[in-house]
Design a protein around this nucleic acid. Structure first.
Lengths: 210, 210
DNA sequence: TTGATAACTTACTTACTAGTAAGTATGATA
DNA sequence: TATCATACTTACTAGTAAGTAAGTTATCAA
């Protein structure tokens, strides 16, 4: 028999994978149980309801993001590298074909989500935005980023583009995610780059953010 | 009895509304039939399968977009106004609370969509991107937009941000869509604005695009 | 007036959904 | 050795999903 605690984690991992791939309404307890070669009642043993399972997944993801933001190695980075690390976070959850980010999967299903999961989703998105806002603020203050408007407004823009791209690539070329990320970076450094190449005629400008 | 052809359109309208609000897996023939006060078999009479209904919805939307792009009034506009008109297209389909754009709804459900609907979805998104690319190209050539990279890359970026924002607002303040749109415009005019206010110290820049 | 057709309803099927109650094998503990 | 909790299985329920076959009704053309 499998070691204690193992199945529960496997259920969460699988459910999260299905959630990213098929949305909250696109997977069932049978999907999970048959994949793990157990009966559907075994899944109910660990998570009485689908809502409970869903909440556990979002809570875990929020905790993981919290841990990620507190990593000293990340904190020691400059704003440009922090932003790249954030992009990598998104790229990583898309490494399995057809996956989306958890945030974009949840906001899509938002209207059909149980109330408690709606609250968790709001908290997840709000957490991303708060972190991004802080990053953009300090990045602009230190001259690494340059953009107009409030950092919070720019954070909304960046997250929207990132989540939108992570979904769009399902129906387009997969490279479109990296293209979108490159354009986000451009949008955050344009004024900077333009200043230094102001006399140049065209649109080709050197990169400050890698 | 209702006039001929009426029910069919009502089914499509309702189904589209459910699709935008709840996703493809989030509505059923019963949702539609009970709303229209008919039996579920009546829906099957007009659309034998859900796939057929889904395809009809996407095809209609593609046709409507095609018609929209060929409107002489639109064609006569300058690039900035055309872009605004495109934004309005998105804002309009979000006027009912909780709705997303058709494109974002479909790409989210992409992995669980029947094959033919996947193809329709690809065509819908590709249509948006082609139009946007052309707009951005002519807008940059005429000096209205200013951005780096290929117009196609910028088109991907703009559409990703727009679709991402249209979904995100379900879990955040509704005003975030307009905020995202404003930032998209900023990203498309930044170099322009920066040139004219290059001596100004901070990030507040006048608007060229309204 | 007949008959064809459009637009349904009635009444069903098969398959899947979340969820539950009761029973069982296994290993740790008293 | 008894017992107790953990981690299941077996076997179900009620509800909903898409889909279908056969019958009904209104309208209109010949």
């Amino acid at each position: 028999m499998t070691p204690a605690g193992d199945t529960k984690k496997q259920i969460m991992d699988l459910a999260e994978s299905f959630l990213l791939q098929r949305g909250y309404n696109g997977f069932s307890y049978n999907h999970i149980s048959s994949e793990l070669h157990v009966k559907n009642a075994a899944v109910h043993y660990h998570f009485q309801t689908k809502t409970e399972l869903g909440i556990a997944i979002v809570r875990r993801a929020r905790g993981q993001f919290e841990t990620w933001t507190q990593n000293p190695r990340l904190i020691g980075m400059n704003a440009a590298k922090k932003l790249n690390a954030f992009f990598d976070l998104f790229r990583n959850c898309l490494k399995f074909d057809g996956h989306a980010s958890l945030g974009s999967a949840l906001v899509h299903d938002f209207n059909t989500l149980p109330g408690q999961m709606q609250e968790e989703t709001k908290a997840l998105i709000a957490g991303f935005l708060v972190w991004l806002e802080k990053l953009l603020k300090e990045g602009r203050a230190s001259g690494i980023f340059s953009f107009s408007g409030k950092p919070k407004e720019q954070a909304i823009f960046v997250l929207a583009a990132l989540q939108g791209a992570s979904q769009m690539i399902r129906a387009t070329d997969k490279t479109y995610l990296d293209i979108a990320i490159r354009q986000i970076k451009q949008a955050l450094k344009r004024a900077e780059a333009v200043k230094s190449t102001n006399r140049k005629k065209s649109a080709e400008r050197p990169s400050g953010i890698k």
